[in-house]
């Protein structure tokens, strides 16, 4: 029987994989909890005691827990700790869904990051946009800054493609 696995790019070891070029380093971030909050975001903020400070595309998030706006009534919460609110629907009018296994997080660091962004998206990184969900490298991604670095969340199934894209663009 043919080994069809040969048709696909081997998945990098995300714990150690790094793209390192002059002025740019790209790594995957592991160990962070990610959950989606849908519905009444103010009610969720009260219930979870996490401040509602929505960050849009290329906005700057800070701290161990950040609330990234991905739609009018939906947040992607990225945190060092699990959700303080149980998964599922809550009577206050919101739902919480854990998506930690569904999205890969990539961390872009260095001055050459500014050269990579225009090759990934037509969106002006200097202009505010309410939602961090944008087309990036030809796919739907969640993009924002965390401190001095750029964070990109992509569907886990497309992570190998995104890694190949980033390595190609970083090298040219």
């Amino acid at each position: 029987m043919r080994n069809l696995a040969e048709k696909w790019t081997a998945m990098p070891d995300w714990r150690t994989a790094v793209i390192d070029t002059p002025g740019l380093a790209i790594r995957s971030l592991t160990g962070l909890h990610q959950f989606l909050v849908s519905g009444d975001l103010v009610a969720w903020s009260k219930a979870s005691r996490i401040p509602l400070q929505p960050v849009g595309a290329f906005g700057t998030a800070t701290g161990d827990t950040c609330t990234i706006q991905v739609a009018r009534d939906r947040l992607l919460v990225v945190s060092a700790v699990p959700s303080p609110v149980a998964q599922g629907w809550h009577e206050q009018g919101f739902a919480v869904t854990t998506v930690s296994a569904g999205l890969m997080i990539f961390d872009f660091e260095g001055p050459a990051c500014a050269d990579l962004v225009p090759r990934a998206t037509t969106l002006d990184p200097g202009k505010a946009s309410a939602s961090a969900a944008i087309s990036f490298a030809g796919m739907n991604a969640v993009v924002y800054r965390h401190g001095e670095r750029l964070r990109v969340h992509v569907d886990r199934g497309l992570a190998a493609y995104f890694w190949t894209w980033a390595a190609t663009v970083a090298a040219t």
Partner: peptide, 17 residues
């Protein structure tokens, strides 16, 4: 490329719509 305006996100590339 044409730019469309999402009432929530603002101006985005037409391919996002």
């Amino acid at each position: 490329m044409q730019l469309f305006h999402c009432p929530f996100c603002g101006t985005r590339d037409e391919t996002e719509f």
